Amino acid sequence: MALLDMMAEVGLTGGIGVLRCGASLTDVFAALGPAEDLGGIDEPRHGSHRFCYGDVEFITCRCRLVSTMGISTWHDAPLELPAPGSNTVVAFPSHMTYQQITSALDAIECRWWLDTRVPDTQRTVLTEPSADSWASFTFSTTDGCDGPVLDDPRLYKVNAWDVSHECPAVPVSLPQDG
């Protein structure tokens, strides 16, 4: 799958392949293999937990459903993303632009709009993959902190998050990794 197709999929579905908001950690691990464990971020037992596959970081809630995911694209190194349908991480060129992303969203008829609450140094595109999730594509309008204004803003970060999930009670016997 091409990189722009993967980015458009985030806008349309809130994820890449099985790695999406609302997916169970068990299903993600079954499809992609174990992720790198970045540790807990909440209460010591049964709280939120961070994982990653290459440059895709995701957080599971205490019931081990993916609640957020993010992809940092600001760096000059190749972008490493999980290949849908396999347990491998694939490297892609990291630079994508506003025009490329919005064209990819348009090509799959993914409705998007600009977030007007961002500073002048950014441009943010929002999508609503479902009634329960959102996705955002944040672009830098300048080349570096004090650099010149870009004709076509560069993609800086992609995020998707679940907005309405409420965890059921979690048994004390449940292992930390779900």
Rank of each mutant, 00 (worst) to 15 (best):
P168T: 02
C61I: 11
D27S: 08
L105D: 00
E166P: 05
S48M: 14
E57C: 13
D151W: 01
S103P: 02
V90D: 07
V149K: 01
F51R: 05
T138I: 13
P129G: 00
N87L: 05
D143R: 02
T13R: 07
G11W: 09
D143W: 00
A131K: 04
G85R: 15
H165W: 05
W112Q: 02
C21F: 08
Q99A: 14
T124H: 12
S24C: 04
L3W: 13
S140F: 03
S24Q: 03
T138L: 08
V125N: 11
G11H: 04
T138R: 13
S86Y: 15
D146N: 11
S136T: 14
D115M: 10
A30G: 08
Q99L: 12
A23W: 00
W134R: 15
P84R: 00
V170T: 14
G70Y: 03
D151P: 03
R123A: 13
R117V: 08
R50Y: 11
C21Q: 07
A160W: 09
Q99F: 07
I108N: 02
A104K: 00
L3S: 09
T102S: 02
L65Y: 02
H95I: 08
E166G: 07
R62A: 15
M7I: 13
A31E: 13
A160S: 13
P171C: 15
S103N: 09
R20F: 06
L12K: 09
M6R: 04
S86H: 13
R154S: 05
D5E: 10
H46R: 15
T97Y: 13
R20Y: 01
D76C: 12
Y53H: 12
D37E: 04
V163D: 06
S130E: 01
H165M: 04
T60R: 05
G15E: 01
P44Q: 04
S94D: 00
R50V: 08
T88A: 14
E36N: 14
L126P: 10
F92L: 09
V125P: 07
S133C: 01
